[in-house]
Amino acid sequence: MKAFEYAAPRSEQEALEFLSADRGRTEVLAGGTDLLGLMKKLIVTPDRVVSLRQVGSLHTIDADSQGLRVGAMVTLEELLDHPASAQYPAVQQAIRSISSQQLQSQGTLGGELCQRPRCWYFRDGHGLLAESGTAIAEGDNRYHAIFGNSGPAKFVCPSRLAPALIALGARVRVIGPNAEDETVMPLEHLFRTPKHDQQREHSLAPDQIVAQILLPPVGERGNASYEVRHGAGPEYPLVAAAATIVAIGGVVSEARIVLGQVAPTPWISAEAAASIISLPVNEETAGAAGDAAVSVATPLSHNEYKVQLVRVAVKRALLLAAGLETGGF
């Protein structure tokens, strides 16, 4: 690890003052479960680390008729245990699936969304775009993207909560050095597919931070997450799907289906959602939604199996959201 300055601000404003506008000069420390490893491997080499631990406003959960307002420094465990999170089984299931006491109690919501990709070429120092995507395309891409991978970015977004939160219509409050930088935007806008190595996979400027996540009330929506996991450990799932549905008179009137671990961003599957509209949710229609989801898949040389896994994850997430048996383990 390179030597660095450590800043421990006590307010949002103070935190922002410590951050540099130059990419890579400063890094934000939340729970540290990802940043420390990246720094030890010299993948990121900040001159200054800005800890948000003592910024009190980032640690609160407020629940009211507008929904849930969760500070970026709230730990996954705190969110899971909060009474208001019971209306969002999709979120609870995603947190429980992380199945590591350490990650749940140390990891934060903001950090979970802003963690860096697990791509082994990135983690081995070949850059986020793995030297313009060739290393991944010609190499071992078994865990890489099967959607949105035509450019150099072929890694997958590692966040396990983003699919559920985006499916639920979460927004994110982002703050920056100037008052006018503050913005509230749909969570999916936090993620982007970088086109060149100067871009990161988040739309945040280097001196911006995620402050809160705003979750609308769940209302009539059934919601669920389903991860296909290789083993019971804290390893990242092979694929994941989150679904929210509104069913009136037994047929679906609204649906949102978001996939995880399959694209450089959380992947909103309009195809899957469209296919289930005006239909009841059952094994057959949910399966068809899975088929629709993968109709635009473009697997790489070693990850075609993920196409099948997406089919299953979409089907099971929909069945689960409708309160039906999913099958599987």
């Binding site: 199945s99 697990r118 082994w120 290789h230 083993g231 019971a232 450990g233 390893e235």
Partner: peptide, 9 residues
């Protein structure tokens, strides 16, 4: 983190 091993579950 990348070398997969079984857990108790």
């Amino acid at each position: 983190a990348d070398y997969r091993l079984p857990r108790l579950g």
